[in-house]
Amino acid sequence: MRMNRLTTTVLATALGCAGFLAAGPSAGAAAASGCQYKVVWPTAGVYENPNPNSVVVKVKHAGDIVGASTCEGAAYNEYGYVLVTTDAAADRRGWMRVEAVVQV
């Protein structure tokens, strides 16, 4: 399932206000390095799609660093997701629960 641009923009704005997608000291630095997160849950799934019923293609562990070259978010019902890059997903785009990670 792909989120439409408006939904993704609204979610990214909401997550940014909550501190999940903050750009850091400078927008230029964030653009150069993308979005990087540290896993804070003991184990967290990387989903094929931003949906709790999607296939888990990989499992990450507390302390692992994950991320993507772009900052994207998505939502499904009450669940929020952030984009991470993974070879395990068909399109190299995996999704992790917002609550499972903190931005580094």
Rank of each mutant, 00 (worst) to 15 (best):
S69F: 02
R93M: 13
V104P: 13
R97W: 03
K60A: 09
P42S: 05
A90H: 02
N49M: 06
T8M: 11
T8R: 15
G45H: 05
V101T: 07
M96H: 04
P50C: 13
R92M: 13
A29M: 06
A14H: 03
V98W: 02
V39H: 08
Y79V: 15
M1C: 06
V56S: 03
H61V: 08
K60D: 00
G80K: 10
D64G: 12
Y81Q: 02
E72L: 13
E99C: 01
V39L: 08
M1T: 12
A14T: 07
G73H: 09
A31T: 10
M1I: 11
R92E: 12
V101L: 12
T9C: 05
G16V: 04
G67T: 12
R92V: 04
A32S: 14
G94E: 07
K38P: 03
K58E: 15
T9V: 10
T70Y: 02
K58I: 04
N77C: 10
R97K: 07
D87I: 07
L83F: 05
S54E: 15
T43R: 15
V40W: 00
L6D: 10
R93P: 00
C35Q: 09
V59C: 01
V57C: 11
C35D: 02
V10P: 05
T8F: 01
A89L: 13
P42T: 05
G24R: 11
N77A: 15
A23E: 14
A75H: 11
S54G: 13
M3G: 13
Y81P: 01
Q36F: 08
G73Q: 04
G63Q: 11
K38G: 00
A68M: 06
V82M: 02
